[in-house]
Design a binder for these strands. Structure first.
Length: 639
DNA sequence: CTAGGGTTAG
């Protein structure tokens, strides 16, 4: 009887009752009383996702030249993928091709996908090339693989090959290939393709489109895609909110968040994470606390908790941040890095470094960004020796090559110590091209140590890279004027005029009673502006009594370029400080956020106010934090 | 069988 089936390679879809009656038990493995039982066993194990037993049974099948139904194999492949069982997956592949079998094409597609999930792109490609027929799923699997592996060129190439093959792309194809776009040209072409195939309203496609436009900084286009249809999908909302939050348009991100809630959607993890980022960008501590209430529901979400921790760090709520950090049940590199950087930026460098030691003890491996934070802490505290130690041994200790940001910290550290020549030397030794931020760091050191020559040198480099940087033009022209190089100064002003550049007005804001009060230089629209100015004048008079002299000559410091004493007096941060004094209870901290760098005079003013009025003032300017307390600032007068 | 959103940086 066994001879009836000697050449039978595949018994899929063969009625089992027939097998039962014809098969003769021979050489049977354990746990199976006949071939049919063996196949049934195998199938059962596959459906139960019992990987070890399935593989054993599969080996028995192979020994007997038998095959089961394709559906069983698809379950088996899924098991291998979910358990990341690479060796077992390869065995399944071998089994499916054993005895010259030609598996169903969907099984081959699944195998391709399996190799992709195992990060064995080469294997996937080999199998893909050998396939007798490729459908949209097979092509999409490969395209998605290349997109994920950030080999965008290959993904786009495969889309073209697929179209040439006459295969019609679907929404899966598009949402994969969109992420592979390498610029506006390919993105626009793909976007057109969406209309051609009538896929422009698919929510997966739309969220991918929004993300990609946002990635290339095209927020208008991202918003246009978003507004095209009324959105009933939370992920699309999350995409558009994230788009603005990640591109530092926090205002718009918060507006969209409000719109989403009004439209009746409940914020969940990704929504809240983006919203917190927007809140952080605007330094709105009280609003952040309100968001915290919603986060409690997802207190096991690490990403969200990290965003919340960062919010407390960057909004001046450092005590809240410390408390929250100690209470966190789970911490990853980002958690530690966020806290280290938060401490360092707020002027607690020693604490940041000891936290770094603690982090190493817990076995969390520091990454590139952690070390930026550590070096930043060193530079902030003037720890020249420690900084050099970490900088020189980071490769050996943590396996991280020093990058632009690490050099930046070291240039800052040397610059702060007055070793400007060493800083320049290090800048030229960098293993990568210095960027604007690197040059600005050097320029910052020049401002403190009043080195006009290197300042001009770095300013020119900055303007070459960023020809619209108003602050640097003004600074450069001020330096020239101060050195009586009138013609050079005039040329700088002329260039500015030609480029149509105007100084961005200084703007400071403060949260009082859940409202944000913004003060813009020379703007008098605040309802209490008269009271504020009266109080400010009174305060200046009082401070003059104890020796305050408005500093009018910040040639190298005042990037706003205001030289006159009366203009200085009404800088936006001064108005915000006075308003804070007037409207916040005595015990509360005055937290202010400014769009530009704080000027030297306002810095001095804040220190003295903190002393005479016995208040803590925290000002976060464009890049740095200033905690004013008892006549001193956490930045140590270096910024 | 193939596709979507979130966290740390000088």
């Amino acid at each position: 009887m066994n001879l009836l089936f000697p050449k039978l390679k595949s018994i899929e879809r063969f009625p089992l009752f027939l097998l039962r009656s014809y098969l003769v038990p021979a050489n049977l493995p354990q746990n199976a009383t006949s071939y049919s039982n063996l196949i049934e066993e195998f199938t059962k194990f596959c459906y139960e996702r019992d990987l070890p037993r399935s593989i054993n049974a599969m080996k028995c099948l192979e020994n007997h030249g038998l095959m089961a139904d394709s559906v069983a194999y698809s379950e088996l492949i899924k098991s291998c993928i979910s358990k990341k069982a690479i060796e077992e997956g390869k065995l399944v592949h071998k089994h499916l091709l054993s005895n010259g079998n030609q598996p169903k094409s969907f099984l081959l597609s699944m195998l391709v996908n399996m190799y992709v999930k195992f990060n064995l792109l080469g294997e996937a490609e080999k199998l893909f090339d050998k396939m007798p027929e490729r459908n949209v799923v097979t092509w999409t699997t490969m395209i998605s693989a290349y997109s994920n592996a950030k080999i965008g060129r290959k993904a786009l190439e495969f889309l073209i090959l697929m179209l040439r093959d006459g295969v019609i792309p679907n929404m899966y194809t598009f949402s994969s290939v969109l992420r592979a776009c390498d610029g506006m040209l390919s993105l626009r072409q793909i976007h057109c393709g969406l209309f051609k195939y009538g896929l422009e309203s698919d929510v997966f496609v739309r969220s991918a489109l929004i993300d990609v436009y946002a990635k290339w900084g095209e927020l208008d286009n991202a918003l246009a895609v978003f507004e095209e249809f009324v959105t009933g999908d939370l992920v699309v909302w999350n995409s558009i909110i994230g788009a603005f939050a990640q591109n530092s348009d926090s205002d718009e991100a918060l507006n969209l968040f409000k719109r989403m809630k009004r439209a009746g959607f409940a914020a969940e993890q990704a929504t809240l994470t983006s919203t917190l980022r927007a809140v952080t960008g605007l330094s709105l501590l009280e609003l952040g606390r309100q968001v915290h209430v919603h986060v409690v529901k997802y207190d096991q979400d690490l990403i969200l908790n990290n965003a919340l921790l960062d919010m407390y760090c960057k909004c001046g709520g450092l005590d809240d941040a410390r408390l929250f950090f100690t209470q966190m049940k789970e911490r990853d590199v980002i958690t530690w890095s966020t806290m280290i950087i938060g401490l360092a930026q707020n002027g607690f460098s020693k604490e940041a470094l000891s936290l770094f030691e603690k982090m190493k003890q817990t076995g969390t491996k520091p990454n590139y960004i952690t070390i930026v934070g550590v070096l930043f802490a060193c530079s902030h505290a003037g720890l020249l020796e420690e900084g050099w130690y970490y900088f020189q041994s980071m490769k050996k200790l943590f396996g991280v090559d020093p990058g632009r940001e690490h050099y930046g910290c070291m240039i800052d550290l040397l610059g702060r110590a007055g070793k400007l020549d060493d800083a320049v030397k290090l800048l030229h030794e960098m293993n990568c091209e210095p960027d604007v931020v690197t040059w600005r760091t050097l320029l910052g050191a020049c401002k403190i140590h009043k080195n006009a020559e290197i300042a001009i040198y770095s300013a020119k480099k900055i303007l070459k890279l960023e020809p619209d940087d108003v602050g640097t033009y003004i600074l450069l022209s001020n330096i020239y004027e101060n050195s009586q190089r009138w013609e050079d100064a005039m040329n700088v002003r002329k260039t500015m005029k030609e480029r149509g550049l105007r100084k961005e007005p200084g703007c400071s804001w403060i949260e009082v009673d859940k409202r944000i009060h913004a003060f813009i230089f020379r703007d008098t629209s605040h309802p209490q502006i008269d009271d504020i100015i009266r109080e400010l004048n009174r305060l200046v008079l009082k401070l003059r009594g104890i020796g305050y002299i408005p500093e009018t000559n910040f040639i190298l410091q005042d990037v706003e370029g205001e030289q006159k004493e009366d203009s200085l007096q009404y800088h936006s941060e001064k108005l915000a400080i006075v308003f804070g004094l007037m409207s916040l209870p005595r015990e509360s901290v005055i937290r202010i956020r400014k769009n530009l760098r704080i000027c030297g005079d306002c810095h001095l003013f804040a220190k003295l106010v903190a002393k005479t009025e016995k208040r803590i003032i925290v000002i976060r300017d464009q890049v740095r934090y200033h905690h004013f307390q008892d006549g001193k600032c956490s930045c140590g007068d270096y910024w």
